[in-house]
């Protein structure tokens, strides 16, 4: 029983961070209909950038914040340079382009920082508190707090404001939206920038737990968008719920079944969602189900 609660607790803490990646992924999808497969690599990039800022002598909090902001900028540059020319083409083309970008980011990081794990200091202590036989680290609490606060802040920001409605409108019909004085190009840029910031934030929070490695990007991407699919692509609350659920399931599988198949569970969940309930837990049919 204690083991189960322990597993759930660390699952929830990591889940909040995965939720950030999923929310960024879902936000970009919701606005541009692009499935951004570079989301996890952006998160790792955030970790590496913070590491570099720290090495050049910036204090830890400044380095972390600068790392997050730089990731946002990187995402914006990617949108401007690589994706904008492709919006008029079939949707498969910009999505394939994000695959190219993911490969490009991973290999660039490997060339610059090498393929051995580096150490980025965590934002809070990892010395656990023991409560009733359960070990919880301050880092886990801080991860959960920061991730939850930013996710809720974003939800309120997107749900309640005109910008949120404009973003949604762009995906529905960019031309009609532009008639209402909203510039779709600006919305796309905004979605990628916010997506990048969320990825960077998730990166600096999760990297001390999973290790700073170029190849972790793909795993983060996979967890991120399985979470988004489970919650319902395009639904931001769904992405948060999905992130937490996926993380718990991965942790439970690692502990009770086999660590080899922890990621297998992620794919299994994705397959089940796609087979049984395409729109996910909180998504809607219009986003997912083919109509003709």
């Amino acid at each position: 029983m204690t083991l189960l609660i322990q597993t759930l607790a660390s699952g929830v803490a990591a889940g909040a961070v995965y939720a950030l990646i999923a929310v960024g992924f879902s936000l970009i999808y919701k606005t541009t209909r692009i499935i951004n497969l570079a989301q996890g690599d952006l998160a790792i990039l955030g970790g590496y950038l913070s590491y570099t800022y720290l090495r050049v002598g910036l204090p830890l909090p400044v380095a972390l914040i600068a790392g997050v902001l730089s990731t946002g900028v990187a995402a914006a540059v990617i949108e401007r340079v690589a994706l904008r020319p492709l919006y008029k083409r079939p949707l498969a083309i910009p999505i394939l382009c994000t695959v190219g970008i993911a490969v490009l980011l991973e290999s660039t990081m490997q060339l610059i920082w090498g393929s051995l794990p580096l150490f980025l200091p965590p934002v809070a202590s990892t010395t656990p508190w023991h409560v009733e036989g359960i070990a919880i680290t301050p880092l886990q609490v801080v991860m959960f707090a920061i991730a939850t606060a930013s996710a809720i802040g974003l939800l309120l920001g997107i749900g309640r404001t005109r910008i949120g409605r404009a973003m949604r409108g762009c995906a529905e019909d960019a031309e009609v939206t532009s008639l209402f004085g909203v510039n779709p190009d600006r919305m796309y840029l905004l979605a990628f920038t916010v997506g990048g910031l969320l990825a960077g934030l998730a990166g600096i929070l999760i990297v001390p737990t999973i290790g700073l490695l170029p190849s972790s990007g793909l795993n983060l991407s996979v967890i991120g968008f399985s979470a988004a699919v489970l919650g319902g692509l395009g639904s931001l609350p769904g992405a948060i719920l999905g992130g937490v659920l996926i993380s718990i399931l991965v942790n439970v599988t690692e502990v009770y079944v086999s660590s080899n198949y922890a990621y297998g569970v992620v794919y299994l969940i994705m397959a089940v969602v796609l087979l049984v309930r395409v729109r996910g837990l909180l998504g809607d049919d219009l986003e997912a189900v083919r109509r003709i």
């Binding site: 529905e172 019909d173 031309e175 009609v176 008639l179 109509r291």
Partner: peptide, 11 residues
Amino acid sequence: HAPENQGRPAS
């Protein structure tokens, strides 16, 4: 003239 959804449902 404003495109009336270009003859397709929003996609």
